[in-house]
Amino acid sequence: MSQQDDHADIPVLPPLVPAATILLGLALQFLWPIGFLPGDSGNWFGWLLLATALSFAGSAAWEMKSARTHVHAFKPATSLVTGGAFAFSRNPIYLAMAAAVVAIAALANSLWFLLLAGPTALALQKIAIEPEERYLERKFGSEYLNYKVRVRRWL
């Protein structure tokens, strides 16, 4: 694998996917507000889920930093990280991004965000996860394939 090819072939920065979702959800909620929760009952759930998602993503980033590999998808992976959050999900940072959209749905009491959460997860899978998996299979071979057998993609 040449140095130029030593990264996942991802077309856009993955955080742009949930960012676009949030912008679209805000626009839809502004134009056609649709709530799905009574009163402010989603606040505690939304804050709890958002805190959990951020903690999970932070833990995963810390594991990657500790392993001296890149968090940035456009840079080479120097090692396969399988501990910490990666023991529960092969994609804890992307899982956290999708969970953050659900958290915002609860916080904003917006059915739009909730409806956009599934397509956001699917977009992350197609745009980022699948290309990353192909790259990691090429780079780490059977070590990554064995990891895929042990750990689920999302949860």
Score class of each variant (00 low, 15 high):
residue 43 N to V: 13
residue 111 L to V: 05
residue 50 L to W: 11
residue 58 G to C: 06
residue 98 A to Q: 02
residue 96 A to D: 06
residue 105 A to I: 05
residue 119 P to V: 03
residue 135 Y to K: 04
residue 102 V to C: 10
residue 48 L to M: 11
residue 47 W to E: 01
residue 97 M to G: 08
residue 41 S to G: 11
residue 30 F to I: 06
residue 70 H to Q: 15
residue 61 A to M: 15
residue 35 G to A: 15
residue 77 A to T: 12
residue 106 A to T: 05
residue 82 T to H: 04
residue 137 E to W: 04
residue 82 T to A: 11
residue 115 L to D: 01
residue 57 A to S: 13
residue 60 A to S: 08
residue 137 E to P: 00
residue 30 F to A: 15
residue 95 L to V: 15
residue 47 W to R: 04
residue 61 A to W: 07
residue 60 A to G: 11
residue 137 E to D: 15
residue 115 L to M: 11
residue 37 L to I: 11
residue 39 G to M: 09
residue 120 T to M: 13
residue 42 G to D: 07
residue 65 K to G: 07
residue 133 E to V: 04
residue 93 I to T: 05
residue 110 S to N: 04
residue 113 F to Y: 15
residue 30 F to Y: 14
residue 41 S to A: 15
residue 89 S to G: 05
residue 40 D to M: 13
residue 49 L to R: 05
residue 81 V to L: 02
residue 33 P to H: 14
residue 53 A to C: 10
residue 74 F to I: 07
residue 69 T to H: 10
residue 58 G to Y: 09
residue 92 P to C: 04
residue 105 A to S: 13
residue 88 F to I: 03
residue 42 G to A: 06
residue 88 F to G: 02
residue 96 A to F: 09
residue 84 G to L: 08
residue 56 F to N: 00
residue 129 I to E: 05
residue 52 T to M: 10
residue 128 A to Y: 01
residue 104 I to P: 02
residue 114 L to F: 12
residue 50 L to T: 02
residue 103 A to T: 00
residue 72 H to F: 13
residue 108 A to W: 12
residue 125 Q to F: 03
residue 123 A to I: 07
residue 108 A to Y: 11
residue 114 L to S: 01
residue 33 P to A: 11
residue 35 G to F: 11
residue 58 G to W: 06
residue 92 P to E: 08
residue 132 E to R: 05
residue 126 K to I: 12
residue 58 G to T: 02
residue 88 F to T: 03
residue 61 A to V: 14
residue 127 I to F: 02
residue 52 T to I: 03
residue 69 T to D: 12
residue 50 L to M: 13
residue 137 E to I: 14
residue 32 W to H: 13
residue 40 D to G: 14
residue 136 L to K: 06
residue 112 W to Y: 06
residue 84 G to F: 09
residue 42 G to W: 09
residue 129 I to K: 00
residue 35 G to R: 11
residue 94 Y to P: 04
residue 88 F to V: 04
